[in-house]
């Protein structure tokens, strides 16, 4: 009669393989990855169709995009990092617990029983892995698409038009991707906290995206001065420094520090809330 308690071990519940299987086969996951993978190709087509020779001398990042694969990848990242990636990360991290609550499957997992802290941990790992994958796949696919469409050329910097050797810049892309990942941690953690606080996946995802938008708006108020530096989105474009001729870490260090700070606190609050929560969904 006690076979069940003997074979049960809290450390073996909800293995990552199972959680991946549960999440990856969802339509929203596949659609999101599909959109992210298609975006560079859509942009390539847009540039090929709409190429206008009048902008040849311009040094804006959008006009330099057709310079080569590296320039194109930088451009794709700059247009997608501000919103599309935020949405992707908020989706993966905001939907993970609230989605289960919405399906009513959360209570059966908890009664299985999967200990609450372990459930959150496994779900957070899988959600972060999906978020990381989406951050990686956009620039990598853009590099591929841009190289096929515009060739493998040295990068030209927006603003100055300076050329930087392709071989020098390619490893810097790893820094860029790493930094974008870290800077999205704050979005991930916020969405995750909202996810354990509400039963509505839409509320969790929308709430996280909405707060990013609000932060961006507040950031535009120059009168706030140095206080803006502590807004979670203030350093979101600091990765551009990694593509400058002289690699400048200072902005990325500040951004990473803030993002990690917010993320650690938000995730801790999420675990704390979920620990004492009455699950009534």
């Amino acid at each position: 009669m006690t076979a069940a308690t003997q074979s049960y071990s809290p450390g073996r519940t909800l293995p990552l393989r199972v959680e991946f299987a549960r999440q990856l086969r969802r339509r929203r996951t596949m659609v999101m990855f599909g959109v992210l993978l298609a975006l560079p190709w859509v942009l390539v087509v847009a540039f090929l169709v709409g190429r206008s020779p009048s902008q040849a001398g311009s040094l804006r990042i959008s006009d330099l995009a057709t310079q080569g694969g590296l320039n194109f990848a930088a451009f794709t990242l700059s247009v997608s990092a501000t919103l599309l990636m935020v949405v992707a990360v908020a989706l993966f991290c905001g939907d993970t617990v609230a989605g289960e609550a919405n399906w009513s499957s959360l209570r059966y997992l908890l009664a299985a029983p999967v200990p609450r802290a372990r459930l959150l941990r496994q779900k957070l790992i899988v959600a972060l892995a999906c978020s990381a994958a989406s951050v990686i796949m956009v620039p990598v696919m853009a590099l591929l698409a841009g190289t096929l469409a515009f060739g493998w050329n040295d990068i030209r910097l927006p603003g100055t038009g300076e050329g930087v050797d392709a071989a020098t810049v390619l490893p810097r892309f790893a820094i860029v991707i790493g930094y974008v990942m870290i800077s999205q941690l704050v979005v991930a953690a916020l969405a995750f906290l909202l996810s354990v606080s509400t039963d509505s996946p839409l509320g969790a995802v929308g709430g996280a995206v909405g707060l990013v938008i609000v932060s961006n708006i507040v950031q535009a108020v120059e009168a706030l001065g140095a206080a803006r530096e502590f807004l979670p989105t203030f350093w979101s474009t600091a990765w551009l420094d990694a593509l400058a001729p002289e690699l400048d870490w200072s902005g990325m260090i500040k951004g990473a520090s803030l993002s990690v700070t917010y993320a650690v606190i938000l995730v801790a609050v999420a675990f704390r809330r979920f620990r004492g929560k009455d699950v009534v969904s």
Partner: peptide
């Protein structure tokens, strides 16, 4: 919450 003895419990509650 999450007590190991729940492994001996099978449940169907509220749908």
């Amino acid at each position: 919450p999450g007590a190991p003895v729940l492994a001996r419990l099978g449940s169907f509650v509220e749908g």
